[in-house]
């Protein structure tokens, strides 16, 4: 039995610890389970699911940038039907809270996806992706519009009794306005942040390195931005924040929690070291023991400014 209480609450969602694996960096759980014991994690968030399967963008989808990477996968996914039939059975074997990330091109599609998925008891919560920078329709077009984010929150909440988390875009001037819209429309929490829009050129061919031209920047390069956005929400809106953006080790986890996160998501690090989530969790516990932190949730928004 752990000496430290690592459990955290994201609104009504209770997690055994604050470590979540970010959408799009764990597939549907099976590959990463070879390296990290899923049962030890706070939860996993699936690759964005859409109503119908999506092929995603042609290559090149990824380019490395200083201390980061750009990706433009284009929400490639199997669709809700295949997910329920083929992916859920594997996930059912684990005792880890499963959060389904949903992406859509229209408000109706968000609602329809949630309606279908909410019936599946393995799914404990939803994370609504209103901030994918890599698709033509939906994604950022919603994420940049406060009233659309509010409307999606309300409509999705209306069709599920499960916690709804809205994944916010950092590509806005005042992210707290969006978090407020989520709260006012009944949303349970926000994830902050999704990737930042970026691009990269080949200086010889003068062409963008990524087929989609723009991609989403992730990795340690975005950590200070993510921390500032988490802090902005934390200081202005009373809503649980799941922090993400360039977390590479346990120290980053602590920093995100101090800045206002109730839980965090590991993303890009999973590509580099898929065994990192387990290690980070152990080191986090060691940190708590060493510094006499009996409840890790006490770290949340413990900043002294």
């Amino acid at each position: 039995m752990s000496k430290v209480d690592l459990s955290v609450n994201i609104g009504p969602l209770k997690l055994r610890n604050p470590i979540l694996l970010a959408s799009g960096t764990v597939g549907y759980g099976n590959e990463i389970s070879e390296f990290t014991d899923l049962n030890k994690l706070g939860g996993i968030i699936t690759k964005s699911l859409s109503l119908r399967p999506r092929k995603g963008n042609p290559p090149q989808r990824i380019v490395e940038t200083p201390a980061g990477m750009l990706n433009a996968i284009g929400l490639a996914n199997v669709g809700v039907e295949v997910f329920l039939k083929e992916k859920i059975p594997f996930l059912k074997k684990y005792d880890v809270p499963l959060i389904c990330n949903i992406a859509a091109s229209t408000i109706e599609e968000y609602v329809e996806c949630t309606k279908i998925l909410t019936e599946e008891e393995t799914i404990k919560a939803f994370e609504i992706n209103v901030s994918c920078p890599n698709v033509r329709e939906g994604g950022l077009q919603f994420g940049n519009d406060v009233s659309a984010v509010g409307k999606i929150t309300a409509k999705v909440k209306a069709v599920t009794g499960k916690p709804v988390i809205i994944k916010l875009s950092p590509n806005v001037s005042y992210i707290a306005d969006f978090a407020r819209a989520v709260k006012e429309n009944g949303g349970d929490a926000v994830s902050a942040i999704n990737t930042l829009v970026g691009t990269s050129f080949n200086i010889f061919s003068r062409k963008p390195k990524i087929y989609n031209v723009n991609g989403g920047l992730s990795g340690p390069a975005i950590k200070p931005i993510a921390l500032a956005k988490v802090l902005e929400i934390s200081r202005n809106v009373d809503i649980p924040v799941i922090g993400s953006g360039g977390i590479m080790d346990w120290k980053d986890v602590v920093e995100f929690m101090i800045a206002g996160s109730s839980a965090i998501q590991l993303g890009t690090i999973n590509f580099i070291d898929p065994s990192a989530p387990g290690k980070i969790l152990e080191q986090l516990e060691e940190y708590c023991i060493k510094y006499n932190i009996s409840k890790i949730s006490d770290l949340t928004a413990s900043y002294i400014i």
């Binding site: 960096t25 764990v26 590959e31 990463i32 042609p58 989808r61 990824i62 590509f271």
Partner: peptide, 13 residues
Amino acid sequence: VMACGFGICQGCP
């Protein structure tokens, strides 16, 4: 070009 090498990043179609 790929990131993870084992299927989770979906970067190499």
